[in-house]
Design a protein around this nucleic acid. Structure first.
Length: 358
DNA sequence: TCTGGGGTCCTAGGACCC
DNA sequence: TCTGGGGTCCTAGGACCC
């Protein structure tokens, strides 16, 4: 049975690196790419920043007004998402030829199963270097690559020598590699799980190994329990698979917290147009519509409705989303901060069908 | 004086069907 | 008086990721 060789490729500080590439005078300065919303008085939040900015304590998700107090000389650039997506598509295309299967995880990240492309871990360094080189030649951008016998190890390895580096973990080194990691590095262990683990006295993967399967499923449920048990042993059976989009959604902030139906319906018009154009572009139909409400206190609520049959129709999307908004307002007295619309239950569109599907 | 936007996966209860 | 068990779909929410 041939061994699996999985790579995880991660573009370095992707959005900010693209901005640096396009404007070399930015090199050496803290570069901060911001997501800007329509909200009055808001400077938005950081999407990505380069390493100079990180040294000053900046990180993704940080509000930009706060970033500006820490890095007043930084260069703040509004995100150009469509452009970054084009760059991403070009990179993914370049990677495809190097992989048996390519699984794009996000704009700047992909898993590659290269099991039949290389003869083993011996020749892997050259192969990894060739991939990094092709990305550099194609888009003049650097990336980092991790390699190992499964996705978990590849992903953790890609972080080891960032930026512009690589790390290969052959099967014999998996155990010593994984056991040295803090639990927070395990994929799927976020803030909440970390807190709960800390209460149980668990901080490292080595600690985690002291709990057996039953204890973990009792504490964390079937899914997360299994994940923790296997991850602690460097095991991950999940395969690299070509991803199919399961939903298209758009979310945006209101100018100010509101219950103004007219304003919100107008926003829904614009959000649904966007979602709809992506459905058309990919020739997909949807069956379920969800409206997302982010409240004053940042709490998120959703309401959804599944149709009798799938459709591609824009008016149905709009009417359903607005209906859900009306219901939500009738049931909840709270002000709304952000609104979102998502189409899910996607399937390839049958072609000429339209309103009659409803 | 605040805190963006786009996703995936899992869980759980109820409806409904065989 | 007692009334199984399994599967699928729908809705809602939570955790996590970039």
């Amino acid at each position: 049975m041939a061994q699996h060789i999985i790579l995880h490729l991660d573009m370095d500080y992707f959005y900010a690196q693209i901005e640096e590439r396009d404007n070399p005078t930015l090199k050496g300065k803290p570069v901060v790419v911001c997501m800007v919303s329509a909200r009055e008085g808001s400077l938005g939040a950081i999407a990505t920043c380069n390493y100079e900015a990180r040294k000053l304590g900046l990180h993704a998700g940080m509000p930009c007004f706060l970033a500006k107090t820490k890095a007043p000389h930084g260069v703040y650039i509004p995100a150009r998402r469509e452009y970054y997506t084009m760059v991403s598509d070009s990179i993914m295309e370049a990677l495809r030829g190097y992989a048996d299967t390519l699984e794009q995880v996000s704009v700047d990240e992909a898993y590659m199963d290269v099991s039949t492309k290389v003869s083993g871990y011996e020749g892997l360094i050259e192969y990894v270097k060739a991939i990094k080189d092709s990305v550099l030649k194609r888009e003049n951008l650097t990336c980092s690559i991790g390699a190992g016998p499964n996705k978990l190890i590849a992903k953790m390895a890609s972080k080891v020598n960032k930026p512009d580096g690589y790390k290969i973990i052959p099967p014999a080194e998996v155990d010593s590699f994984i056991i040295s990691q803090p639990v927070s590095k395990i994929l799927g262990v976020g803030e909440k799980t970390q807190e709960k683990l800390a209460e149980l006295g668990i901080r490292t993967v080595a600690d985690l190994r002291n709990l057996n399967r039953d204890e973990l499923t009792r504490e964390f449920g079937q899914g997360r329990g299994k994940l923790l048990y296997e991850s602690a042993r460097g095991e991950d059976e999940s395969q690299v698979v070509e991803r199919v989009k399961e939903q298209y959604g758009r979310l945006a902030s209101l100018k100010r917290d509101s219950r103004d139906t007219e304003e919100m319906n107008a926003l829904i018009d614009s959000l649904t147009s966007d979602v709809h154009s992506r459905l058309l572009k990919n020739n997909m139909a949807y069956k379920t519509v969800s409206t997302t409400f982010v409240l004053e206190n940042m709490e998120t609520k959703t309401k959804s409705r599944t149709l009798q049959a799938k459709t591609q129709n824009l008016d149905v999307l709009r009417t359903t989303a607005k209906g859900l908004l009306r219901e939500f307002l009738a049931e909840n007295p709270t002000l709304i901060r952000r609104l979102g619309v998502t189409a899910s239950g996607l399937a390839p569109s049958a072609g000429q069908k339209s309103i009659t599907d409803y």
